[in-house]
Design a protein around this nucleic acid. Structure first.
Lengths: 329, 329
DNA sequence: ATAATTGATGTAATCCGTTACATTTTGTGC
DNA sequence: GCACAAAATGTAACGGATTACATCAATTAT
């Protein structure tokens, strides 16, 4: 592999001039620029970016921490991040933390060791240290910690959940089951509050028997419904994500409960498959790619030394599809 | 950020000794090792990996090129890769090529510019140059080019497709539609050949009207079935992936065609949701995580200077679920 | 006891661009 | 044609680790 020295020799100039010709073309004369370009082409020179990064002490790389790469919810967000990052000359290192704090910490250390410039975390399962602030340029997306000194990009979880429940109430339901996510997760607390807001508004008392915990997986939705079905008579079900909604739908079908005739189901996220379930799934749409782009833009701003919004809330949308109908009289 | 010099001063030794104490502890005396460790802890030193990489001229990073990160099929493969990479001290840079050769090339350039040591490509949409061999350490997974000098990890597409068709024939079907992928893709050619092998074995003539192309997306499965339904009377359908199978299932349902009573459907891949469709989808299981691990192990071997198997074929499995039944008499 | 070997440590070159500073060239104004 | 400013280019330090080689001390063999 040729180095900048080879190019310099070939072009008959100094390495400094070669560097300038490539980085700040306006700083060299037309003539030498052409000489250099020719020499670059002839030698097939490609700069060693590691050396550049060392000198500049930046890596032009950001790390995205996802708690579970196999969870489809994160895919489109990552794509959004990637687009913005690429446009700004950054690469994206994807880190699957597998829901462990240690892994997340390992990825955060990449910034300390200068291998990455900043982090976008799609999980709140992070080391405690950062609770009291961190020098690491960092943005959280989707998840958050209340009172956390890190910019976030997320949705109005409480309002969105209320929106879903309002819809079910509107079409006549009053006994609405709820499959939550892990309740130590703040966004789940918010969504549960939103669910309760909805009921409260029409003076229905919230019943603890209406809740079952899931962990956002298909499987957990399935088993949560199996439990819920035994403890709570309902005509509608609100799930904290689409995967659990699909799991619940399978469980209901197995139990001979017809969706939507006997049970209306609302999900959350609007994953790609939501339009292809049978029946099609009514859900709260999160603009995943937008969330990714916004988070990436926020991080870019921070990396350029600017101050970023502390919190950006992106809008959601209720998508009414075939999985809901009015309850039978 | 403290550097190795600071640590050296603090420990009262040379930088060389500090470096040795950390990299080859057996090369320094017990006593100095402890001094150094203490100094490292006290100063909070974390080595600048960029500097190390420059000196060593390696980056301990591999790039994974996926054609579409939002396609769930790749998620588990990436996870498998990531596990092996991490165990070997490598980071994973995820590159979404968005089905474009230019993007793929940009990611390949990371190796030339020393930002990455090797590549695992999950797509065959790569620059032509590599057809005649490449110096870049590289492995392809899932996809491949026939007669391509790059190690691959993949399944027996032809045999697996035949297996699916054999099953449908076994349970009594003889008119079997087929939704393919893009036919410029060699794995699609193989699967089509497998389909035809199956029919030929029982002396059924292959009918071009039985085929419709898709592009592996939900949407394309839906529209392909809408077209296919008009041109070919069938009792069973074989789709080249699960997403298209689900799209086709939706189309059939909308047309009043009952699955599996009126139409049996077999997919391909066994994505996570395949068990949760309604009815549950019969499919060919690809061991995605294994494919990822094997590909990563192969690349590791290459990076260590070893010779890797040219091709590794991993086994698939037919998973019989509820989306198939014998045709009505 | 002395030479030879082994082990521990230090010195300084090296990886390859970038960039502050010095120097030379070119250009402008009078 | 001269003085001076501006533009172009060169020289060399620098980033922060690793490592070949040199040096010195301790151990072993003879």
């Amino acid at each position: 592999m040729p180095t900048i020295k080879d190019v310099a020799k070939l072009a008959g100039v100094s390495t400094a001039t070669v560097s300038r010709a490539m980085m700040n073309p306006e700083k060299v004369s037309e003539k030498t620029r052409l000489k250099v370009e020719l020499a670059v082409a002839e030698s097939g020179f490609s700069p060693n970016v590691i050396a550049r990064n060392l000198r500049r002490s930046e890596s032009k790389t950001i790390v995205v921490i996802v708690p579970d790469i196999a969870n489809m919810f994160f895919a489109s967000i990552v794509r959004g991040i990637q687009q913005v990052a690429l446009n700004n000359g950054y690469k994206v290192l994807l880190g699957d933390s597998i829901h462990t704090v240690e892994q997340a910490k390992a990825y955060m250390d990449l910034v300390r060791s200068k291998q990455a410039d900043g982090i976008i975390s799609l999980t709140a399962e992070l080391p405690m240290e950062i609770r009291q602030g961190t020098e690491i340029p960092m943005v959280m997306a989707c998840e958050y910690f209340p009172g956390f000194p890190i910019p976030t990009v997320r949705i109005d979880n409480r309002g969105s959940a209320k929106r879903a429940v309002d819809y079910l109430l509107d079409i006549g339901h009053s006994r609405i089951g709820c499959i939550t996510g892990p309740m130590e997760n703040p966004i789940c607390v918010d969504r549960k509050a939103g669910y309760q807001d909805g009921l409260q508004q029409v003076n229905i008392e919230s019943d603890e028997a209406a809740f079952e915990d899931g962990d956002f997986s298909f499987q957990s939705g399935y088993s949560a419904f199996m439990r819920l079905h035994q403890q709570y008579a309902m005509t509608a079900l609100f799930c904290f994500n689409d995967m659990m909604a699909l799991g619940a739908m399978k469980a209901a079908t197995q139990l001979g409960i017809k969706v939507p005739q006997d049970l209306s189901i609302v999900g959350f996220d609007d994953l790609l498959f939501a339009e292809y379930t049978n029946p099609e799934l009514t859900t709260i749409r999160q603009p995943q790619e937008d969330i990714g782009k916004t988070a990436a833009n926020t991080l870019m701003k921070i990396l350029q030394g600017g101050k970023a919004n502390q919190d950006t809330i992106v809008p959601t949308q209720l998508l009414v599809r075939a999985s809901c109908t009015s309850p039978k009289k």
